[in-house]
Design a protein around this nucleic acid. Structure first.
Lengths: 200, 200
DNA sequence: ACGATGTATACTGTTAACAATTATCCCCCC
DNA sequence: GGGGGGATAATTGTTAACAGTATACATCGT
C-alpha cells in the first residue's frame, strides 16, 4: 500500500505520535527539536511542524520560546465525558451518511480492518491502538463526515493516551468485524449498536 | 494589554484568522505562502506555521504539495450538531469547576467582557465574534477546563464562519453580562442558564 | 484537429545559518 | 552561608537559499 512517498513532516509526525502512545516520552517531558531532528536524520523544520500539529492534536502543550511538553492523560471523569462526545460524533455521522456512502469506501474500511487484524495478531499494543482509530476514521470518511474528523481525532488522541485493551486482542478485532458487516450491508441500527458496544 | 511582544507566528495566525472571519478570503480560495508572507513583511516560515495551525483549527484544508484551501462553512444541520457539542463542553466544564475557580481568573473574564463591550460599541462584526469567543474561553480556563479548550475552540471555529449576530450588538453584550454576574458569584444554575440562552 | 509528451514555471517542502530568547551557573556582595 | 546579578550556554524563533513536486503550456506526432 501507499506507494505514494509520504512527506517528511508526515513521517516525523507519525513516528513521534507512535513514540508518545508507546510511552517512550513520559508525561511532563520537554521535547527538544534538535534531539528529535538528529534521531530522524532531518532538519528542525519538519520536527517543528510536527510539534505544532501534535500540539493541536492534544498530545503536546506549546510554551512560547520554551518548547513543547508532553501532556498528561485526562483524569477518569474527563475521559468518560470525552468518550461520550466521541460516540455522539460517530453516531451522528453514521446516521446521516451510511446509506449514501461511496461504494469504493467500503473497500477502504475493509483494508483498515485487515490492518487492525494484523496488529492484533502481532499483539502490538501501540499498533492496535492506531489501527483501531484508523478503522473508525475510515468509517466516518465513508459516511461523508470529513468535516467533523479533525475534531473527532482530537478527542480520540486524548483517549488513546489511556488506551487500555491489553490482552484481549481477539475481542478487539471481532468487535470491529461486528461493526464492519452491518456497515457494509447498510444496516444502520446494527452498525450503531456495534459502535456503541465497542466504544466504552 | 499584552505588553509582551507576541511571536511573529502568533501575529500572522491572528491576522489571517481575522481575514478569514471577515470574509476577505472566500471559501474555496487557495492561499499562497509567498503572497501572505510579502503582505505581512515576513518570511514564509511563520506563514507556513500559521497554515498548519489554522488547518487544525478547522479554517483551512491542507493538500500535500498543493497548499491550503479555505474551507466551506458547515451546512445548517451540521452547525446545529456542532453547537450542541460546544454547549455540552461549556456546561460540563462550568459544572465541574465553577466553585473551585481561581479568584484571579474572575478579573481575566471581566477584562474579556470589557473588550467585548468595546467591540460591540464599535459595531465591528469580526471583532465582536472574536471577543465573544475569547470571553467564553476565559470562562472555561477559569473553571479549569484547559484540557478541553483545544477541542472546544475547533468547534467554535467551524461555527464562527457562519457567525450571525449582525445588528443587535447591545443584546450580544448584555447576554454576556448575564453570564458574567452569576459566574462571579458562583451561582452555578444561573450561569449555565445564561450560557444556554447565549449559545444557540 | 486532436492527443500525448516534454518542458517551463510556480508553488510547496526542506535545509542550514542567523537572531532572539530563555535557562544555567558562577561570582560577588551582603 | 544565602541571595542577587551578569556572563555563558542551550534552545527556540526567523530567515533565505535550495530541492522537489504538480500544474500549465507549447510542441510534436499522428
Amino acid at each position: 500500500m501507499s506507494l505514494i512517498p509520504q512527506t517528511v513532516r508526515e513521517q516525523v509526525t507519525n513516528q513521534i505520535r507512535i513514540d508518545l502512545l508507546s510511552g517512550r516520552f513520559p508525561a511532563g517531558t520537554m521535547l527538544r527539536e534538535i534531539e528529535l531532528a538528529e534521531r530522524f536524520g532531518v532538519s528542525r523544520g519538519p520536527v517543528r511542524d510536527a510539534f505544532i500539529q501534535l500540539s493541536h492534536e492534544g498530545y503536546l502543550a506549546y510554551q512560547a520560546n520554551r518548547g513543547v511538553m508532553v501532556r498528561h492523560p485526562p483524569d477518569p471523569k474527563d475521559r468518560e465525558f470525552i468518550t461520550s462526545l466521541r460516540l455522539q460524533i460517530e453516531t451522528y455521522v453514521i446516521e446521516r451518511g451510511l446509506t449514501d456512502k461511496d461504494p469504493d469506501s467500503v473497500q477502504s474500511v475493509e483494508v483498515a480492518l485487515e490492518r487492525l487484524k494484523e496488529a492484533c495478531d502481532a499483539a502490538e499494543p501501540t499498533q492496535v491502538a492506531i489501527r483501531d482509530i484508523e478503522f473508525h476514521q475510515q468509517i466516518l470518511l465513508a459516511c461523508g463526515g470529513d468535516d467533523l474528523v479533525p475534531t473527532w481525532r482530537q478527542l480520540c488522541s486524548r483517549m488513546l493516551l489511556t488506551y487500555t485493551r491489553l490482552g484481549d486482542y481477539n475481542q478487539a478485532y471481532s468487535e470491529h468485524v461486528a461493526i464492519f458487516e452491518p456497515f457494509r450491508d447498510n444496516d444502520l441500527k446494527k452498525t450503531i449498536a456495534a459502535v456503541r458496544a465497542n466504544i466504552k
